[in-house]
Design a protein around this nucleic acid. Structure first.
Length: 721
DNA sequence: GCGAACTGTCTAATTGGCCG
DNA sequence: CGGCCAATTAGACAGTTCGC
């Protein structure tokens, strides 16, 4: 069952599913499976593996819940076969809870109350009767034969109806048809809750909003759901077309109406069909279906939001590193001055301080004296300015300084998202206990330029703030998926065991915050690692953790050349054998495409099937030992004449950097303080569903200004190729 | 190689806050 | 004022590593 579902959804063999389940149960890390067990997974990548893992845990949870619900239902009398069937057939946890809800509550449902009054037999009579007009009389007769106190004819009829409605509402046919029609032609409607207009100004767009369910985009749905959660909006799903005058949908007519009393299935008289349909639709079906659709929509929208956030984070983490070059970073400010930090090629802080290069002080000359001195002394080639307040003025100052003093430097603006969060964090105060909080931000900007990944891992992923509607998503879900993104990024890039910070190490497959700290402590007291084997001396790292982490940790100048490749120690013996047979030292093989091509052609035949995959894998790791999947560093230049939105004009062509991507478009830093928006319709000549198909955060793009709304500070852009 | 200890994760219970 | 929901925390358990 479980295996079949996974097999079909992931289009792989049963064997692969079983292997993956074993791996996951054993706690084998996803980066490890993705890289070193390709042979057993038919080459699934980390993203697919994560999806597999999520799906697997979801199904496990679902089955466990299903089992426990069925067990507790078996203790309750009068549970219909229909109900049990629906419970057995559902594939969603939410639906499971919906079905179970009436039986979970200590108080009884209307139908249960009616049943306990013995109204089941009356309900059967009413069901078989062919005229509504007779219901009253039948109930009256039924009551007179029994001695039930305090029960009026009306309540008896109502009770009997409730029993029937309850049974009908579990009819799989009806549920399916209602779901389909509401999904296809339903209209989602949001209205402001009476008296909440003042409080819900930000939801003005949704005070009286209507659109087709099938076409409602995620971001609007999330906004509506947020409004609903804040009790400012009311959301409904309605059918506006293909309905009878009383609101009952036409399509329901084609459903068979039959009920199971005892062991026989009894259809109702055809003359009564419209009546029962209308009743069950209004009383239960509509609400039930509506709730179900809303919850699926919400879940989808949330998934999408998490995905958007994760994708943006991934782009930011995988942004091209400028590499080992000295940098001067400027963290711009007006009143409090511009904080600067100079770091050397290895990221060590050389000097920090504050200059008042911007208004109101405008101490340009003094500032230049300080900075030029630093730039020349350390032969710095890059001046990086954070993109916060006063960034444009600071950047202009830097450009003027470069021109005036004829420095061999380039000035650029880069994202400082998360830098302030970092500077106040515990990590930062541990790293720079003697440096003022405001100066740590500048250091972070500088280091991020050298290596975005290493610096950004020090900040909690959600603090980087690159998602839309991140507040609508459950925090744990978001944190989990963001941690997964960071883990995948860190492991795909690989980590230098002798240089990596504690923050970076903790994301390495198999390592934990504790083991990461122990590694750093070991390094401090014992010096650099000479080989991967030494990792086993670390407290907390045994065979298992070693297997998980070893391949992702590189050692640059150790005593085992293979430790500087992504070849896993478990395959070292294979490489030793090859090297011995070919009489070629390992050092010569690594990165030498001629030698590797020779090995490949000579040994291809000898390694078959499983071994062949392993062999291929080893060969590919050997051929590019320092593989860094990140793109090569490139930079955008902002024109120094354009400082703010008033300097822009329509049709102006500029260069910019993508700062954020949403489902409706991409935001671009074009050097004025306000980011511009390329609407999704202006990103590409062709129709695209998602801006990410074309652009990435951090990417340099050429754009044209197509519209300006100065009062609302909105800049509309078009991407030109 | 085995038991102890430690780490991490999962679950359950309690508490606090908010809404009706 | 009471009840419910959500979040947090503590405790238990499982798995891994360490020490003998």
């Amino acid at each position: 069952m479980l295996i079949d579902i996974l097999k079909n959804e992931f289009r792989c063999s049963e064997k692969v599913v079983r292997t993956l389940i074993t791996f996951l149960d054993e706690g084998t890390s996803i980066p490890f499976i993705a890289r070193y067990r390709k042979d057993e997974t038919q080459g699934m990548n980390d993203v697919t593996l994560r999806q597999f893992h999520d799906r697997y845990t979801y199904i496990l949870k679902l089955e466990a819940r299903r089992k426990s619900i069925i067990t507790s239902l078996s203790n309750i009398k009068n549970t219909s076969i229909e109900l049990i069937k629906s419970i057995e057939n559902t594939d969603s946890l939410i639906e499971l809870e919906e079905l179970y809800r009436p039986y979970k509550a200590s108080k009884q449902t209307k139908s249960q109350v009616a049943e306990s009054l013995g109204l089941t037999s009356l309900s059967k009579k009413l069901w078989l009767n062919s005229s509504k007009a007779q219901h009253h009389g039948i109930a009256s007769l039924w009551l007179s034969k029994r001695n039930i106190n305090n029960l009026s004819i009306e309540s008896a009829v109502e009770g009997a109806y409730n029993i029937l409605i309850d049974k009908l509402a579990n009819n799989a046919d009806l549920i399916k048809e209602s779901l389909n029609s509401l999904k296809e032609s339903g209209v989602i409607e949001s209205k402001v809750i009476r008296g909440k207009k003042e409080k819900s100004e930000k939801y003005r767009d949704y005070w009286d909003h209507k659109e087709k369910v099938a076409k409602a985009p995620h971001h609007r749905l999330l906004a509506m759901f947020r409004g609903e959660k804040e009790k400012l909006l009311k959301i409904n799903i309605k059918l506006e077309k293909h309905i009878h005058a009383d609101g009952t949908p036409l399509f329901l007519n084609k459903c068979a109406l039959q009920l199971n009393f005892d062991d026989t299935i009894t259809p109702c008289p055809s003359s009564m069909k419209p009546f029962w349909l209308s009743l069950v639709w209004k009383e239960k079906l509509l609400k039930h279906t509506e709730r179900k659709i809303l919850s699926t929509l919400k879940m989808d929208a949330e998934h999408n939001a998490v995905r958007v956030f994760s994708d943006n984070l991934k782009d930011l983490l995988m942004a091209p590193p400028a590499g080992a070059t000295p940098v001067l970073a400027l963290d711009p400010g007006y009143k409090n001055g511009v904080k600067y930090a100079a770091i050397d090629a290895s990221g060590e802080v050389q000097s920090t301080g504050i200059v008042f290069a911007t208004p109101p002080a405008n101490k340009t000359v003094e500032s230049e004296t300080v900075l030029v001195n630093i730039l020349k002394r350390q032969a710095i080639k890059w001046i990086v300015t954070g993109n916060g307040t006063a960034s444009k003025e600071t950047d202009t100052f830097a450009r003027n300084m470069i021109r005036k003093h004829e420095l061999n430097c380039k000035a650029i603006i880069s994202s400082e998202a998360g830098a302030s969060v970092y500077s106040a964090s515990e990590t930062a105060s541990k790293e720079f206990p003697n440096i003022d909080v405001s100066l740590r931000g500048a250091i972070s900007i500088a280091r991020r330029f050298q290596d975005p990944l290493s610096e950004l891992v020090k900040i909690a992923p959600k603090a980087i703030g690159v998602g839309q509607y991140q507040h609508d998503i459950k925090e744990t879900t978001l944190n989990q998926s963001l941690a997964n993104v960071v883990e995948d990024c860190v492991n795909s890039v690989g980590v230098d065991l002798n240089l990596a910070s504690e923050s970076l190490l903790q994301y390495v497959s198999g390592l934990t915050p504790t083991t990461a700290r122990n590694i750093v402590e070991y390094r401090q007291s014992n010096g650099k690692f000479k080989n991967r084997e030494t990792l086993l001396n670390i407290r907390g790292i045994g065979d298992k953790a070693f297997k998980m982490c070893a391949g992702f940790l590189k050692i640059n100048d150790g005593n085992e050349p293979l430790d500087n490749t992504a070849v896993h120690p478990e395959s070292y013996s294979l490489v030793y054998t090859l090297s011995k047979n070919l009489k070629m030292p390992i050092k010569q093989i690594i990165g030498n495409s001629d030698h590797i091509a020779r090995i490949e052609s000579e040994y291809k035949e000898r390694y078959k099937e499983k071994e062949y995959y392993l062999f291929k894998n080893v060969i590919s790791e050997l051929s590019h030992p320092f593989r860094d999947p990140r793109p090569v560093f490139k930079y955008a230049t902002f024109s120094s004449d354009i400082k703010n939105i008033n300097d822009l004009s329509i049709n102006m062509k500029l260069e910019g950097v993508i700062t954020n991507i949403t489902s409706f478009g991409a935001f671009v830093d074009i050097g004025v303080h306000q980011d511009g928006l390329i609407h999704i319709s202006n990103i590409s000549n062709q129709f695209i569903k998602d801006p990410r198909q074309v652009v990435r955060v951090g990417q340099t793009v050429n754009i044209e200004v197509i519209d300006l709304d100065i009062s609302r500070r909105r800049i509309s852009l078009k991407k030109i190729s």
